[in-house]
């Protein structure tokens, strides 16, 4: 014996289905509403209630947390009924569904990027809408997420001891997000990574790399004269300078010490283009 709902679903009384569907919707029984609407949207195309039906249909998906479907249906609504009073709302909701589908920063950010694009499109289409303020706020949240991702992934290289990679990654991150809130910290970490990179390099390469660290440190001091990392950055500069002196002394000694000289020649060979490409650091 079938329940009332199943009988209704199997029937062909579209008008009844529509009314009952709306009732279920208002009773917040979205699962049942969706089942009825799913059947109807095809059949109502080109008929007078189609617009309202589709509006409810999109929201039903939204309330069921199927944001991927909801986002699509809101967009279809906006594209089909560009003159409707609900079009602006649906465009916003479509973008908002992307926003809700944007995951934690350490996962793939495809939806974050799409959410930003969709929100921006909304702002461009309805610059006078009262939803613009909210949309701008959401865009800021999404951008923060991308910045956090970039910052964390760059810092990972420093954590696992790939100092050269860290320097490059921090540089890229700062180029991608020049006004990021992590700018100061990342600039400082660049100094640190460069110093550690130099320190862990073969002696023949150290002086150049220490010099780069000194340059980074000076740039940092100029840019952030009141930074809480200022002391540390200056300390790293001092250590780099000491490192250069130590390297020079080591290389000078090698000129008179045959064993050391041979070792350096071997290192130079390793660094030469003919040799196997490998990292130019001693240890990892």
């Amino acid at each position: 014996c079938k329940s009332k709902f199943e009988r209704l679903k199997a029937s062909n009384d579209n008008a009844k289905k529509y009314q009952e569907g709306i009732k279920y919707y208002h009773k917040k029984d979205f699962g049942k509403a969706l089942e009825l609407f799913d059947d109807l949207v095809q059949r109502y195309r080109g008929q007078s209630d189609a617009e309202e039906l589709y509006y409810y249909y999109a929201y039903t998906n939204y309330y069921l947390k199927d944001f991927t479907s909801a986002r699509y249906h809101f967009k279809v609504f906006a594209d089909s009924y560009p003159n409707s009073s609900r079009t602006e709302e649906c465009r916003y909701m479509s973008a908002y569904c992307y926003y809700l589908d944007s995951p934690n920063f350490s996962l793939d950010q495809e939806n974050t990027q799409k959410a930003i694009d969709a929100m921006q499109l909304f702002i461009n289409l309805y610059p006078k809408s009262e939803r613009v303020a909210e949309a701008s706020k959401l865009i800021q949240n999404l951008r923060d997420k991308l910045e956090t991702k970039s910052y964390n992934n760059s810092k990972l290289y420093l954590t696992i001891g790939d100092y050269q990679s860290a320097v490059i990654a921090f540089g890229n991150s700062l180029r991608d997000y020049p006004d990021t809130k992590y700018a100061e910290e990342m600039e400082y970490l660049t100094v640190k990574a460069q110093y550690l990179y130099a320190k862990n390099s073969f002696e023949v390469k150290q002086e150049d790399r220490y010099n780069t660290a000194i340059t980074y440190s000076q740039q940092f001091t100029e840019k952030f004269p009141t930074s809480k990392y200022l002391k540390d950055a200056e300390q790293l500069k001092k250590q780099s300078e000491q490192g250069i002196i130590a390297t020079r002394r080591y290389l000078a000694e090698a000129a008179t010490n045959e064993r050391l000289y041979k070792k350096i020649q071997a290192e130079k060979y390793k660094l030469s283009p003919q040799a196997q490409q490998d990292t130019t650091t001693k240890k990892k």
Binding site: S106, D108, N153, Q164, I168
Partner: peptide, 23 residues
Amino acid sequence: IKGNDVTNDKVILRGLHTKPGQR
């Protein structure tokens, strides 16, 4: 990394043999 809907970036990135700055 693209397509990691569950696994965090660092789990993949830390084990890679291709890192910025390498040939």
